[in-house]
């Protein structure tokens, strides 16, 4: 029995077994998740003032479901996310292949330009979009659904596809160029080599990049907030306006749904980006 509790003595570099470090990390992990967990748990709380638990209910989910404008905002956000994911995955993959494959003058400057949407403050990009769509192109108001969402979608593509490019580019950095040469050596042409050898290797990066683009688009508040025209409603903007008034279980319920979607997608993306076991060192 005692064997179970016997542990090897700590080495000088066994920092991960220092008790105070473990307590510290555990406390931080709890603090990181506590607010989100309470949000999720109290979305099932049968009370409007959600500090005290008054019993389990799903009525706020029903209420959220029956809130037409909330549902409309949700559908809009999903539509924007799907559309921008498709476009930004294609654009991002093309850029990634270009950066992986070719050398050209000012390549470093070009890469820096591609990274700009990632690094500049969101608020700057947000107000730029506001100015662009309201003063230059005009909002696609009055266009048929889903085309009335095209302004937000275009903005989302602009800030998501550089992320996709980075993810795919990082994946391709591990590609053994001899695989490509082997394929050609065995008689395959460029096209066959791309689809039979390069793309299968690239695929996890493409999927991870697409999931990333989807979550980024779904999560974005600031840019969407500024890009939404007078009457396009998106989920974060709707939640924002609800939150400004009060904390209600209905918002908790809607948020919980979004949290679950993002967490699942993120977990899948992380799995795909994990080091590939099929690779030969």
């Amino acid at each position: 029995m005692l064997e179970m509790f016997k542990r090897a003595p700590q080495g000088p570099l066994d920092y991960s077994r220092r008790l105070w470090l473990r307590f510290f990390a555990a406390a931080i992990f709890v603090l990181l998740y506590l607010p989100i967990f309470t949000l999720v748990i109290f979305s099932f709380n049968d009370s409007k003032r959600n500090v005290v638990w008054r019993g389990f209910t799903t009525k706020y989910y029903e209420k959220a479901w029956n809130n037409d404008s909330l549902i409309e905002a949700f559908v809009n956000s999903i539509t924007i996310a799907v559309a921008s994911t498709i476009v930004s995955t294609i654009l991002g993959a093309m850029i990634a292949i270009l950066l992986w494959r070719f050398r050209f003058p000012f390549k470093a400057a070009y890469e820096g330009f591609m990274a700009l949407p990632i690094v500049i403050p969101e608020i700057c990009m947000g107000v730029a979009m506001l100015a662009f769509f309201s003063r230059v192109t005009g909002y696609p108001t009055g266009w048929m659904w889903p085309f009335n969402l095209s302004a937000i979608t275009a903005a989302h593509i602009a800030f998501t596809f550089p992320f996709v490019a980075i993810v795919i580019r990082a994946r391709m950095a591990g590609f053994n160029r001899e695989l490509e040469e082997a394929s050609k050596d065995l008689g395959a042409n460029e096209w066959q080599t791309f689809w039979n050898v390069i793309f299968p290797y690239m695929r996890p990066g493409v999927v991870a990049g697409a999931l990333l683009a989807f979550t980024l688009s779904l999560d974005d508040f600031v840019i969407t907030f500024f890009t939404s025209g007078p009457d396009t409603l998106t989920f974060p903007v709707k939640v924002y306006s609800m939150v400004r008034f009060s904390v209600t279980p209905e918002v908790n319920a809607a948020s919980t749904i979004l949290v679950i979607i993002t967490v699942v997608l993120t977990l899948i993306a992380m799995r795909l980006q994990a080091p590939d076991k099929t690779e030969v060192a």
Binding site: N176, A182, D185, G187, N189, P200, Y201, D276, T278
Partner: peptide
Amino acid sequence: VPANQRPVNMVFQSYAVFPH
């Protein structure tokens, strides 16, 4: 003649066996 049309084949240093 491009590589894929030459009557020679190669064993690569890393072997380059397609992992998938």
